[in-house]
Simulated assay, not measured.
Amino acid sequence: MTESKSRRRGAELERAILDAAWAELSELGYARFTVEGVAARAGTSKPVLYRRWKGRAELALAAWSRRVPVSDEVLDTGALRTDMIALFTHLSRRAGAMMTEIVAGVMADAFRHPEVAELLRERLARPFSLTETVTAVVNRAVERGELPPVELPHRAARAPLDLVRNEYITCGGGPLDEAVIAELVDDVYLPLLRGLGSACTD
């Protein structure tokens, strides 16, 4: 270990480790990904890594998250339908990035280790504050008069993600094309919102 590496601390050391983890994942894949390999590549020790991450699954997801950052941007195109098209498109791109060999490997670990399953559920359950984003989009539509007042249940607020994930898992391939996204928005989600709005006015 070089002297410069031994002096790294805090955020600098963490960046070096996550860069090393990403390099290991890219070159070797998740199946051959090890904490030992990351430590050697980063020029540090296994105990240093284990103080920050419990195991290889958590380390792999941390490296992935750094490369595919979560956006908190609330979309505003001026109309409900185009807001939803933009939202579904964003979710599709994230799902395409998420359903990689890396995350597939973590999912395989989840079947054997409950703590990994809990970690994966936590990561998948909070894509860029989805429920808050959907609620903001719906509230703007209500203010514009596109919808009557809507009480948005949690499952309805997270339905865009569930729809995109289901489509991706059942159909495979890359991010969903524009026609599929339009169908999900026009044939499924907008009717759901209008039905919830009607229920609130009854």
Rank of each mutant, 00 (worst) to 15 (best):
A136S: 06
E3Q: 14
R123G: 04
G37V: 09
G195M: 06
V134L: 00
L18C: 03
A57K: 07
S6G: 11
I169F: 12
L13T: 02
K5A: 15
V68C: 06
E12I: 09
L59E: 02
V38P: 09
I102W: 13
L130W: 09
A60M: 05
A117Q: 08
A141I: 02
S6K: 15
A104H: 13
L87N: 07
T2L: 13
E27I: 06
A42W: 00
I85K: 06
V180G: 07
G145I: 10
P175Q: 11
V164Y: 00
R144N: 01
G145M: 02
R158S: 15
L80E: 05
E151R: 14
K5F: 08
N166K: 12
E146F: 01
G172D: 03
L184I: 02
E115G: 03
V48D: 04
R52V: 03
L13C: 04
E143H: 11
A104L: 13
Y168L: 14
V142D: 00
L75V: 15
I169Y: 10
L59R: 02
E118S: 12
N139Y: 11
M1G: 14
R158L: 13
A117Y: 06
V150F: 05
D177Q: 07
S65E: 14
T34C: 01
A182R: 11
D202A: 15
T100W: 04
A108K: 09
A159G: 05
E3Y: 13
L18G: 00
L80A: 00
A108C: 08
V74H: 01
A42I: 02
V137D: 06
D72H: 12
L124D: 10
W53N: 00
A104C: 10
W53E: 02
A79C: 09
R8G: 06
A40V: 12
V142G: 03
G173W: 03
I17S: 05
R126G: 14
G105Q: 00
T133K: 15
A16L: 14
E146I: 08
A40Q: 12
